[in-house]
Write a protein that binds this DNA or RNA. Structure first.
Lengths: 145, 145
DNA sequence: TGCAGAAATTAGGTTTGACTAACTTTATTC
DNA sequence: GAATAAAGTTAGTCAAACCTAATTTCTGCA
């Protein structure tokens, strides 16, 4: 079977790595192997592996023992992934869900939301924010279960 | 009250199989290996494998060369999975998304939606149905992109 | 400056869930 | 009722991502 010519490229794992790397760089100024491993709760060995792959795929520049920087392509991708994550979190937050539930669900579902669906959720979120009364009803209905 | 053995059991793959098996049984009256394989677009060999595993996990009863039936536990699980799938589809449909987009996104995200989030989306869907004006605005905003 | 500890890498292994190829069982058809 | 076709099974592979253990490189400080 065709196991993808040469670039499986955008797997869930890849997206998770890019998201964390961008987050680490934004907050700490850099993303070392040990930081990424800690943040994703996986071993340093696994991170080294993936980082080498992301370098090969042109999503970041990596020098052994030296560290890494996102390429333009990697950064753009990471920003889109982050934006998607935030929009989804905002939407669920609006519905009154607990932070832990939001975190867990978004972490899983974010990789499967296509651009049209994301746009729709974005538009819906905006409308809902303008209709607190309706939102209140939704939250009430949820609580009454 | 039979507690779950100790198996990891509920992977995405398991959920997909159960969903299709219930669907086949509902529409055709039975679910043969060849049907499941065709429906999930995977090989018959893979289906045989998984079906043996689901039998071992008590989600269905399976006899070599003879066929399979969902157990009570398996059917309950399959129904919950199906319900979740339908609620998500209904929600996205309401936002005016294309059927193909809906199918694709739901297929991916359904496995990651927890019960609280599902309840919230259900409540939101119900409210939106009562507010066509707001819904119209959302759809309009989406189209204007 | 040299050495101990932290960080990173390599090597080799596991698990999940797919695959193909070859074989067996069941069903159909003449 | 035997030959052939369809369905199902087994055996052996593979790839993605993870792991641990062992090794190498780097860094800070006495």
């Amino acid at each position: 079977m065709p196991a993808r010519n040469s670039a499986p490229a955008r797997s869930q794992a890849v997206e998770d790595y890019l998201e964390r790397i961008l987050d680490l760089i934004s907050t700490k100024g850099y993303a070392r192997v040990v930081d990424i491993a800690g943040s994703l709760k996986i071993s340093q060995a696994s991170v080294t592996n993936m980082v080498q792959r992301l370098d090969a795929e042109g999503l970041l520049n990596y020098e052994k023992y030296r560290g890494l920087v996102l390429t333009k392509a990697g950064e753009t991708l990471a920003r889109n992934i982050t934006r998607r994550h935030e929009l989804l979190s905002d939407f669920l937050k609006l519905l009154g869900l607990d932070d832990e539930v939001i975190y867990h669900d978004v972490e899983g579902m974010e990789h499967h939301i296509s651009p049209p669906t994301l746009r729709a959720i974005e538009a819906l979120t905006a409308q809902l924010q303008r209709h607190p009364a309706l939102l209140a009803k939704v939250r009430k209905e949820i609580d009454e279960r």
